[in-house]
Protein backbone atom coordinates (compact mmCIF):
# COMPACT_ATOMS: atom_id res chain seq x y z
CA UNK A 1 0.00 0.00 0.00
CA UNK A 2 2.72 2.45 1.02
CA UNK A 3 4.63 1.55 -2.08
CA UNK A 4 1.62 2.22 -4.22
CA UNK A 5 1.03 5.60 -2.66
CA UNK A 6 4.57 6.77 -3.10
CA UNK A 7 4.53 5.76 -6.75
CA UNK A 8 1.31 7.65 -7.21
CA UNK A 9 2.75 10.71 -5.53
CA UNK A 10 5.63 10.66 -8.01
CA UNK A 11 3.19 10.25 -10.82
CA UNK A 12 1.14 13.23 -9.69
CA UNK A 13 4.24 15.36 -9.32
CA UNK A 14 5.16 14.46 -12.87
CA UNK A 15 1.67 15.28 -14.05
CA UNK A 16 1.80 18.72 -12.45
CA UNK A 17 5.17 19.53 -13.98
CA UNK A 18 4.16 18.36 -17.42
CA UNK A 19 0.90 20.27 -17.32
CA UNK A 20 2.76 23.51 -16.74
CA UNK A 21 5.20 22.84 -19.56
CA UNK A 22 2.58 21.67 -22.06
CA UNK A 23 3.03 23.44 -25.37
CA UNK A 24 -0.67 23.99 -25.90
CA UNK A 25 -2.46 26.71 -23.99
CA UNK A 26 -5.34 25.04 -22.16
CA UNK A 27 -8.38 26.50 -20.48
CA UNK A 28 -11.22 28.68 -21.72
CA UNK A 29 -10.36 31.84 -23.69
CA UNK A 30 -10.74 35.08 -21.76
CA UNK A 31 -13.19 36.81 -24.07
CA UNK A 32 -16.75 38.15 -24.31
CA UNK A 33 -19.38 37.03 -26.78
CA UNK A 34 -21.24 40.05 -28.13
CA UNK A 35 -23.21 39.30 -31.28
CA UNK A 36 -23.10 42.07 -33.90
CA UNK A 37 -21.75 44.40 -31.18
CA UNK A 38 -25.26 44.41 -29.75
CA UNK A 39 -26.38 41.31 -27.91
CA UNK A 40 -24.13 40.18 -25.10
CA UNK A 41 -24.45 36.47 -24.39
CA UNK A 42 -23.92 35.09 -20.90
CA UNK A 43 -21.17 32.56 -21.57
CA UNK A 44 -19.91 32.21 -17.99
CA UNK A 45 -22.26 31.91 -15.04
CA UNK A 46 -22.11 30.66 -11.47
CA UNK A 47 -23.31 27.08 -11.13
CA UNK A 48 -26.67 26.33 -9.50
CA UNK A 49 -26.74 24.62 -6.12
CA UNK A 50 -25.69 21.00 -6.09
CA UNK A 51 -23.75 21.34 -9.34
CA UNK A 52 -20.41 19.50 -9.51
CA UNK A 53 -18.69 22.50 -11.17
CA UNK A 54 -18.20 26.00 -9.72
CA UNK A 55 -18.60 27.92 -12.94
CA UNK A 56 -20.52 27.03 -16.07
CA UNK A 57 -18.73 27.97 -19.27
CA UNK A 58 -20.04 27.88 -22.80
CA UNK A 59 -18.23 25.78 -25.40
CA UNK A 60 -17.63 29.06 -27.28
CA UNK A 61 -14.73 29.86 -24.91
CA UNK A 62 -12.90 26.70 -25.95
CA UNK A 63 -12.90 27.44 -29.67
CA UNK A 64 -10.26 29.25 -31.73
CA UNK A 65 -10.20 33.03 -32.27
CA UNK A 66 -11.53 32.55 -35.82
CA UNK A 67 -14.40 30.29 -34.79
CA UNK A 68 -15.38 32.60 -31.94
CA UNK A 69 -15.36 35.57 -34.34
CA UNK A 70 -17.61 33.72 -36.82
CA UNK A 71 -20.25 33.25 -34.14
CA UNK A 72 -20.06 36.88 -33.04
CA UNK A 73 -20.96 38.15 -36.53
CA UNK A 74 -24.39 37.07 -37.73
CA UNK A 75 -23.55 37.94 -41.35
CA UNK A 76 -20.63 35.54 -41.26
CA UNK A 77 -22.25 32.81 -39.15
CA UNK A 78 -23.15 30.04 -41.63
CA UNK A 79 -25.84 28.81 -39.23
CA UNK A 80 -27.90 31.96 -39.93
CA UNK A 81 -28.90 30.49 -43.32
CA UNK A 82 -30.72 27.76 -41.40
CA UNK A 83 -32.48 30.35 -39.29
CA UNK A 84 -33.77 31.97 -42.49
CA UNK A 85 -34.83 28.62 -43.91
CA UNK A 86 -36.52 27.79 -40.61
CA UNK A 87 -38.53 31.01 -40.71
CA UNK A 88 -39.76 30.07 -44.19
CA UNK A 89 -40.89 26.66 -42.94
CA UNK A 90 -42.61 28.28 -39.94
CA UNK A 91 -44.75 30.25 -42.38
CA UNK A 92 -45.37 27.50 -44.94
CA UNK A 93 -48.59 25.52 -45.01
CA UNK A 94 -48.08 21.76 -44.90
CA UNK A 95 -50.29 18.73 -44.22
CA UNK A 96 -53.97 17.85 -44.68
CA UNK A 97 -55.25 20.46 -42.23
CA UNK A 98 -53.92 23.25 -44.49
CA UNK A 99 -52.01 24.98 -41.72
CA UNK A 100 -48.54 26.36 -41.04
CA UNK A 101 -46.98 26.85 -37.62
CA UNK A 102 -47.81 30.54 -37.98
CA UNK A 103 -51.52 29.82 -38.56
CA UNK A 104 -51.85 28.62 -34.96
CA UNK A 105 -49.16 30.75 -33.31
CA UNK A 106 -50.21 34.08 -34.79
CA UNK A 107 -48.05 36.50 -32.88
CA UNK A 108 -44.94 34.50 -33.68
CA UNK A 109 -42.45 36.94 -32.23
CA UNK A 110 -43.84 37.07 -28.72
CA UNK A 111 -44.90 33.43 -28.82
CA UNK A 112 -41.40 32.25 -29.63
CA UNK A 113 -39.44 34.59 -27.38
CA UNK A 114 -37.94 32.49 -24.60
CA UNK A 115 -39.68 29.32 -25.72
CA UNK A 116 -36.56 27.60 -27.00
CA UNK A 117 -34.71 28.34 -23.76
CA UNK A 118 -37.24 26.32 -21.73
CA UNK A 119 -36.95 22.92 -23.43
CA UNK A 120 -36.85 20.02 -22.76
CA UNK A 121 -40.15 20.20 -20.87
CA UNK A 122 -42.66 17.77 -19.46
CA UNK A 123 -45.28 16.55 -21.92
CA UNK A 124 -48.37 15.42 -20.04
CA UNK A 125 -49.79 13.49 -23.03
CA UNK A 126 -46.65 11.53 -23.70
CA UNK A 127 -45.82 11.31 -19.98
CA UNK A 128 -42.19 12.03 -20.75
CA UNK A 129 -40.05 15.07 -21.43
CA UNK A 130 -39.95 16.33 -25.01
CA UNK A 131 -37.52 18.59 -26.82
CA UNK A 132 -38.20 21.10 -29.58
CA UNK A 133 -37.83 18.50 -32.31
CA UNK A 134 -40.50 16.32 -30.69
CA UNK A 135 -42.76 19.31 -30.06
CA UNK A 136 -42.53 20.17 -33.77
CA UNK A 137 -43.46 16.61 -34.68
CA UNK A 138 -46.36 16.69 -32.23
CA UNK A 139 -47.74 19.84 -33.85
CA UNK A 140 -47.22 18.41 -37.32
CA UNK A 141 -49.12 15.22 -36.52
CA UNK A 142 -51.87 16.57 -34.28
CA UNK A 143 -52.52 20.04 -35.60
CA UNK A 144 -51.28 20.07 -39.19
CA UNK A 145 -52.05 16.46 -40.08
CA UNK A 146 -48.59 16.29 -41.63
CA UNK A 147 -46.00 13.55 -41.35
CA UNK A 148 -43.52 13.89 -38.47
CA UNK A 149 -39.99 14.74 -39.58
CA UNK A 150 -37.47 11.93 -39.64
CA UNK A 151 -34.58 12.43 -37.22
CA UNK A 152 -32.17 15.03 -38.57
CA UNK A 153 -34.24 15.82 -41.67
CA UNK A 154 -32.95 19.14 -43.08
CA UNK A 155 -36.28 20.86 -42.30
CA UNK A 156 -36.28 19.55 -38.73
CA UNK A 157 -32.85 21.05 -38.11
CA UNK A 158 -33.72 24.36 -39.79
CA UNK A 159 -37.00 24.82 -37.92
CA UNK A 160 -35.44 23.84 -34.58
CA UNK A 161 -32.61 26.29 -35.24
CA UNK A 162 -35.08 29.08 -36.05
CA UNK A 163 -37.12 28.43 -32.91
CA UNK A 164 -34.08 28.29 -30.62
CA UNK A 165 -32.64 31.44 -32.23
CA UNK A 166 -35.73 33.41 -31.15
CA UNK A 167 -34.38 33.02 -27.58
CA UNK A 168 -30.89 34.27 -28.45
CA UNK A 169 -29.14 35.43 -25.27
CA UNK A 170 -31.92 34.29 -22.95
CA UNK A 171 -30.85 32.00 -20.09
CA UNK A 172 -31.32 28.25 -20.50
CA UNK A 173 -33.78 27.09 -17.86
CA UNK A 174 -35.40 23.68 -17.46
CA UNK A 175 -38.41 23.34 -15.18
CA UNK A 176 -37.77 20.25 -13.11
CA UNK A 177 -40.91 20.67 -11.03
CA UNK A 178 -43.28 19.50 -13.79
CA UNK A 179 -44.47 15.89 -13.99
CA UNK A 180 -41.79 13.34 -13.43
CA UNK A 181 -38.91 15.55 -14.60
CA UNK A 182 -36.86 14.80 -11.49
CA UNK A 183 -36.67 11.10 -12.13
CA UNK A 184 -35.59 11.81 -15.71
CA UNK A 185 -32.92 14.12 -14.31
CA UNK A 186 -31.79 11.27 -12.01
CA UNK A 187 -31.63 8.85 -14.91
CA UNK A 188 -29.69 11.41 -16.97
CA UNK A 189 -27.22 11.96 -14.16
CA UNK A 190 -26.65 8.23 -13.86
CA UNK A 191 -26.00 7.96 -17.59
CA UNK A 192 -23.66 10.96 -17.50
CA UNK A 193 -21.39 9.15 -15.07
CA UNK A 194 -21.68 5.68 -16.62
CA UNK A 195 -18.59 4.53 -18.49
CA UNK A 196 -19.35 3.11 -21.89
CA UNK A 197 -17.57 1.33 -24.69
CA UNK A 198 -14.23 -0.30 -25.20
CA UNK A 199 -12.50 2.97 -24.25
CA UNK A 200 -14.39 2.92 -20.96
CA UNK A 201 -15.23 6.64 -20.72
CA UNK A 202 -18.21 8.57 -19.37
CA UNK A 203 -19.38 12.04 -20.32
CA UNK A 204 -17.92 13.21 -17.02
CA UNK A 205 -14.48 11.76 -17.72
CA UNK A 206 -14.03 14.10 -20.66
CA UNK A 207 -16.28 17.10 -19.91
CA UNK A 208 -16.07 17.30 -16.10
CA UNK A 209 -12.60 16.00 -15.29
CA UNK A 210 -10.65 17.26 -18.31
CA UNK A 211 -12.44 20.28 -19.77
CA UNK A 212 -9.88 22.90 -20.75
CA UNK A 213 -7.42 20.27 -22.02
CA UNK A 214 -6.66 19.30 -25.57
CA UNK A 215 -7.49 15.70 -26.47
CA UNK A 216 -5.50 15.41 -29.68
CA UNK A 217 -6.70 18.41 -31.78
CA UNK A 218 -9.92 18.89 -29.82
CA UNK A 219 -10.14 21.36 -26.98
CA UNK A 220 -12.46 19.75 -24.43
CA UNK A 221 -15.27 21.99 -23.18
CA UNK A 222 -17.81 21.33 -20.45
CA UNK A 223 -20.12 19.87 -23.10
CA UNK A 224 -22.93 22.39 -22.63
CA UNK A 225 -25.96 22.45 -24.90
CA UNK A 226 -26.85 26.17 -25.04
CA UNK A 227 -25.69 26.50 -28.66
CA UNK A 228 -27.69 23.66 -30.24
CA UNK A 229 -28.36 23.00 -33.00
CA UNK A 230 -24.78 24.14 -33.70
CA UNK A 231 -23.04 24.79 -37.00
CA UNK A 232 -20.03 22.47 -37.18
CA UNK A 233 -17.26 23.63 -39.47
CA UNK A 234 -15.82 20.10 -39.69
CA UNK A 235 -19.07 18.84 -41.21
CA UNK A 236 -20.17 22.10 -42.89
CA UNK A 237 -23.64 21.46 -41.49
CA UNK A 238 -25.97 22.03 -38.58
CA UNK A 239 -25.65 19.34 -35.94
CA UNK A 240 -28.56 18.45 -33.70
CA UNK A 241 -28.07 17.72 -30.01
CA UNK A 242 -28.92 14.03 -30.22
CA UNK A 243 -26.54 13.67 -33.14
CA UNK A 244 -23.79 15.22 -30.99
CA UNK A 245 -24.62 12.93 -28.04
CA UNK A 246 -24.47 9.93 -30.34
CA UNK A 247 -21.12 11.05 -31.76
CA UNK A 248 -19.62 11.37 -28.28
CA UNK A 249 -20.96 7.95 -27.25
CA UNK A 250 -19.66 6.40 -30.48
CA UNK A 251 -16.24 7.88 -29.71
CA UNK A 252 -16.09 5.70 -26.60
CA UNK A 253 -16.52 2.73 -28.99
CA UNK A 254 -19.98 2.01 -27.62
CA UNK A 255 -23.23 1.34 -29.44
CA UNK A 256 -25.34 4.51 -29.27
CA UNK A 257 -29.05 4.71 -28.42
CA UNK A 258 -31.60 5.91 -30.99
CA UNK A 259 -32.36 9.64 -31.21
CA UNK A 260 -35.20 10.68 -28.87
CA UNK A 261 -34.93 7.38 -26.95
CA UNK A 262 -35.49 7.48 -23.20
CA UNK A 263 -31.73 7.40 -22.63
CA UNK A 264 -30.96 10.40 -24.84
CA UNK A 265 -33.97 12.38 -23.56
CA UNK A 266 -32.83 11.75 -19.98
CA UNK A 267 -29.35 12.92 -20.93
CA UNK A 268 -30.82 16.01 -22.58
CA UNK A 269 -32.76 16.89 -19.42
CA UNK A 270 -29.69 16.45 -17.22
CA UNK A 271 -27.09 18.04 -19.51
CA UNK A 272 -29.38 21.02 -20.19
CA UNK A 273 -29.67 21.52 -16.42
CA UNK A 274 -25.88 21.38 -16.16
CA UNK A 275 -25.77 24.51 -18.33
CA UNK A 276 -28.55 26.38 -16.50
CA UNK A 277 -28.28 30.15 -16.88
CA UNK A 278 -26.00 30.14 -19.92
CA UNK A 279 -27.41 32.27 -22.74
CA UNK A 280 -28.88 30.56 -25.79
CA UNK A 281 -26.34 30.86 -28.65
CA UNK A 282 -28.19 29.03 -31.42
CA UNK A 283 -26.83 28.80 -34.01
CA UNK A 284 -23.48 28.44 -32.23
CA UNK A 285 -20.40 27.83 -34.39
CA UNK A 286 -18.11 25.00 -33.37
CA UNK A 287 -15.28 23.06 -34.97
Amino acid sequence: MAKTESKLATLLAVAVVSASTAALAGGPADDKLVIDDEIEIKTRVAAPEGHPLDELISGWHYRTDETRALEADSFQNPGMLYVERGEEIWNTVDGAAGKSCASCHEDSESFLKGLGASYPKWDADAERPINIELQINKCREENMEAKPYKFDAADQKALTTYIKHQSLGMPVEVDLTQGDMESWWDKGEELYYTRTGQLNLSCATCHEDYNGNYIRADHLSQGNVNGFPTYRLKQSAMVSLHNRFRGCIRDTRAAFPPAFSDDLMALEVYVTWRGSGLGVETPAVRQ
Binding site: L8, L11, T194, R195, T196, G197, Q198, L199, N200, L201, S202, T205, C206, D209, Y210, R250, T252, R253, A254, A255
Partner: peptide
Protein backbone atom coordinates in the same frame (compact mmCIF):
# COMPACT_ATOMS: atom_id res chain seq x y z
CA UNK B 1 -3.92 4.69 -11.45
CA UNK B 2 -7.29 3.65 -9.97
CA UNK B 3 -10.79 3.16 -11.39
CA UNK B 4 -11.29 6.86 -12.09
CA UNK B 5 -8.48 7.25 -14.61
CA UNK B 6 -9.39 8.46 -18.10
CA UNK B 7 -6.67 6.27 -19.63
CA UNK B 8 -8.16 3.22 -21.37
CA UNK B 9 -6.94 -0.30 -20.57
CA UNK B 10 -5.47 -1.62 -23.80
CA UNK B 11 -5.38 -5.36 -23.03
CA UNK B 12 -8.26 -6.00 -20.67
CA UNK B 13 -11.87 -7.09 -20.94
CA UNK B 14 -12.84 -4.90 -17.96
CA UNK B 15 -14.33 -2.09 -20.07
CA UNK B 16 -17.44 0.08 -20.27
CA UNK B 17 -21.01 -1.05 -21.04
CA UNK B 18 -22.59 -1.35 -24.50
CA UNK B 19 -19.35 -1.94 -26.41
CA UNK B 20 -20.02 -1.41 -30.14
CA UNK B 21 -20.37 -4.57 -32.19
CA UNK B 22 -17.09 -4.11 -34.09
CA UNK B 23 -15.17 -3.98 -30.83
CA UNK B 24 -17.16 -6.37 -28.64
CA UNK B 25 -15.15 -9.14 -27.03
CA UNK B 26 -11.88 -7.63 -28.24
Amino acid sequence: FGEQTIMPGFYTMKVGINVAEDHAGK
